[in-house]
Design a protein around this nucleic acid. Structure first.
Lengths: 204, 204
DNA sequence: TGTGAATGTGAGCAATTGCTCAGGTTTTGG
DNA sequence: CCAAAACCTGAGCAATTGCTCACATTCACA
């Protein structure tokens, strides 16, 4: 718990569950009924909680969605980080490491796919651009640093620009796939082709 | 005029202008005040038209946005098609043609950038996935065919898959740039790097 | 010039929204 | 045990929403 989106920190276990119930109700309504069915009254009712209680922890409707998003993005990020830590080590060659990374990213997107999809199809991006920026401001330097560290294996390049390109190209592909071709997400064909794109871009 | 989003076809010039005024008011409100300020009353008022008139041509709020989107996407598409027809011919090599195409796509995105941005940051994707699919169902076969026609210049590949990858990778980059780094849109650096990505992916 | 079709009006309704507040219940800690 | 803090309740208000309908105006054209 603890977030800029919370009006006050729940101190007891009871209230911590209340807040979580509210977030889960928000998610459920978003996934099942869509963005414009998310109303404070509706969320409170679905969470089995009074509307007054909702307003003790959330300043307004936006805060509710803000916290849901924050949690989702953090989950995605740690999900990815875990898989990377498991599968990638520095004695791998670039040709070995890239497929693992691609695979990890595709797998991360398959966690809670309904929420992934709902977020992208239903949510107005209002206020989310900053969150995407926040994601990129974490991911891009990591990629850039990784590329710099492997300078001997890749062509001479502006690693910041390359990280920007790779990051957004991959997101574009994955994003489109989640939306329109979810069945492709765990296909070897797609993963292989993304690897091709990335490796060819990097190779000397 | 004439669209599935129109409740009835405006027959006289007067009503054609009314419908256009409503669409423009919708766009103005979206760009200036944001998605959730688009209310039928508000749109009608801003268009200088009675609310009753609005409901003679549009079944509901969604139709209003639907038509705006339809017009925007068509505009983007013809914009791109024109630039491509102007700049790309078949006696160009792949290395010559690709930069022109990239340039055309970046330039197309710079038309009505405020609307581009507003659409992506403000609009719930509800009902837009189909429109993106529609775009892709036009663009992907074109790219795929172009690749097939240049089979001698590119590596052996599944041209459908390659078109899918390239299309969405490019959109991912351009999309992110419109949102967070609009000043990069007409930079040579970005265009060059995208060319590098595409050409390296295609080359034998 | 007259008549029907096309177009336009706007007060206002039924429903919904975000949110408040005065007061009740539960938990904590001394 | 008890008081203060933490937590919870839900009726209901002010504002807004999408939308209707009875009626007025303008147009095409015979």
């Amino acid at each position: 718990m603890n977030s800029e989106y919370l009006l006050k920190e729940p101190a007891q276990e009871r209230s911590r569950q209340t807040v979580q119930a509210l977030i889960e109700a928000t998610e459920l309504i978003l996934v099942e009924d869509g963005w414009d069915k998310i109303t404070t009254n509706h969320v409170a009712e679905r969470a089995g909680v009074s509307i007054g209680t909702l307003y003790q922890y959330f300043a307004n409707k936006e805060a509710l969605i803000g916290l849901l998003l924050e949690q989702y993005i953090e989950e995605q990020f740690t999900e990815l980080a875990t898989r990377l830590a498991d599968a990638v080590s520095f004695d791998m060659t670039l040709q070995e490491a890239v497929p693992h990374i691609i695979h990890a990213m595709l797998e991360a997107k398959m966690v809670r796919p309904e929420l992934s999809r709902a977020l992208f199809t239903q949510a107005p991006y209002f206020g989310q651009v900053e969150l995407l920026d926040a994601w990129n401001s974490q991911a891009e330097p990591m990629v850039s640093a990784a590329l710099a560290a492997r300078a001997s294996e890749v062509r001479d390049m502006d690693t910041d620009m390359a990280a920007y390109i790779l990051n957004n190209a991959m997101h574009g592909i994955i994003h489109a796939t989640v939306l329109s071709r979810p069945e492709l997400l765990d296909s070897k064909e797609l993963a292989d082709e993304i690897c091709e794109l990335v490796l060819r871009y990097l190779q000397a």
